[in-house]
């Protein structure tokens, strides 16, 4: 069971949130209403997605204070717990891409992985900026027009319609196209949360002494560039692209990885080493 601790916790969180959102519409619950774009917690506390908020602001519309306050609350929350915790603990698309990734490993499709020249992991940051520009030019929140995240969430709450096609497309893209293609390369929401979580407190910490270099963590990690320290030294994962999913902790048979509170004392040192190893 230990091997699936965080995986099960994440699925439980994701499903619980979807049930709460679904119930808000279907049964009139006042626990968590709305969608990820903008929600209301307990009928009082506003929540809003930072990137969605930025898109609406980019169109030139002066947003209501509820959304601005909500975006501030969410930004602060993920600033503390790790920005991309949204991706692995909340986002419903994560279940789709995780399934695609699992199938990929099962079908052994990874052996044919290609180094895509035009699809680097940095593409998402370009897309993030581009989304704001397009929002400003067209006068509509541009990513929301095609975001599989809210399309899937609204699909679950209000019914899918043909919107299910977007979710299937993401699944096929991640399974047969690019490994970690959507979440790891394209998603501008994930990119935004990566930036928000740069300095987050909760971090995975690697214990070099305990590690036996089995590399299971790197196989299972959806952003394995953040695990550069495995087999090298005992430091925390400080990269904002880490989703704090805890899969590496689950699969580690040596207890060499564990969540911890970020240690700011070792940060500067580890950054220096990171640059060296990259260079």
């Amino acid at each position: 069971m230990k091997k699936f601790k965080y995986l099960l916790l994440r699925r439980a969180t994701q499903l619980l949130l979807l049930v709460l959102y679904f119930g808000a519409n279907a049964y009139g619950w006042h626990i968590l209403e709305g969608t990820f774009g903008s929600s209301v917690l307990f009928g009082v506390i506003p929540l809003a997605d930072p990137y969605t908020t930025l898109q609406v602001l980019a169109t030139g519309f002066v947003l209501g204070t509820d959304v601005l306050l909500g975006a501030a609350i969410i930004t602060l929350f993920y600033f503390v717990v790790g920005g991309r915790a949204f991706c692995s603990w909340v986002c419903p698309i994560n279940m789709v891409t995780d399934l695609a990734n699992w199938l990929r490993r099962r079908l052994k499709l990874d052996k044919e992985e290609v180094n895509y020249r035009f699809l680097k992991r940095s593409a998402r940051y370009w897309i993030m900026v581009l989304g704001l520009i397009v929002s400003a030019v067209v006068g509509v929140a541009a990513f929301e027009v095609l975001s599989p995240i809210t399309i899937m969430q609204r699909g679950i709450i209000f019914g899918f319609g043909a919107g299910i096609a977007v979710v299937v497309a993401i699944f096929l893209f991640d399974l047969f196209g690019v490994k970690n293609g959507w979440c790891g390369h394209l998603c501008p929401l994930g990119a935004t949360y990566s930036l928000i979580g740069q300095k987050s407190l909760i971090r995975v910490k690697h214990d070099h002494e305990a590690c036996t270099n089995c590399m299971e963590c790197k196989i299972v990690c959806p952003e394995n560039q953040v695990l550069w320290m495995v087999n090298k030294e005992s430091v925390s994962v400080t990269d904002g692209e880490c989703t704090n999913c805890g899969r590496c902790i689950d699969v580690c048979g040596d207890n060499a990885l564990e969540f911890s509170i970020r240690s700011f004392a070792t940060r500067k040192q580890s950054k220096g080493v990171k640059n060296e190893t990259n260079g």
């Binding site: 519409n25 209403e33 709305g34 969608t35 774009g37 903008s38 929600s39 209301v40 809003a48 969605t52 908020t53 609406v56 169109t59 030139g60 519309f61 947003l63 959304v67 006068g139 509509v140 929140a141 929301e144 809210t150 609204r154 709450i157 209000f158």
Partner: peptide, 9 residues
């Protein structure tokens, strides 16, 4: 269309 955040509230 600019303003709607598509929350469904």
């Amino acid at each position: 269309l600019k303003a709607c955040i598509k929350c469904g509230l």
